[in-house]
Amino acid sequence: MQVPQQLVESVRRGEPEAFEELVRQTHRSVYSLVYRIVGNAEDAADVTQDVYLRVWRGLRGFRGDANFSTWLYRVAANAALTYVKRRARGGVATDPAEMPDLPASDGTEERADAELLERALATLPVSQRAVVVLKDVYGWTCEEIGKQMGTTEGAVKVRLFRARQRLADELASAGVVVPLKKRKKTS
């Protein structure tokens, strides 16, 4: 997701048409990130709306020295993580069976893996899913994730490694890769 700097400046000046254009250009990417963390379409839509309210109010405070897309993803991840924390306290479950409409694979091996992994992500516990999505899908560092989630870098790595292991198990059960040996102690 790349947002033209000129568009960002227009939004910061308070031009309503510019904000509309910004939403048009970015809402799919933001929704995708939020969906990958919260795990269901209805909640992801609500959180995405909340993200843009935060963006609308926070844009004047956005300093031009940071990349706008990075900032937007940070706002989105923060909103999604806040939501899942609250949901965990409220005991509302995700529905791993529910899957969004995904673009069809173009047939290459890597893209087929990506499609399979997208579905496998939905089956992970939310704490592992959030970490692996932010680290391996969106390229955050473990330190950044720890700060955002209010936990240590070590705790992030533990969740990350377990998530990768489980995802490899999912690929193995689909016959894509060789199965990993079962450990005595598993998560």
Partner: peptide
């Protein structure tokens, strides 16, 4: 196998989920 998981996840970001 794990490297393949990593490579696949890197491609997940390029896919957009239809809202």
């Amino acid at each position: 196998s794990l490297a393949r998981v990593r490579a696949g996840l890197a491609l997940v970001a390029k896919r957009e989920i239809e809202p």
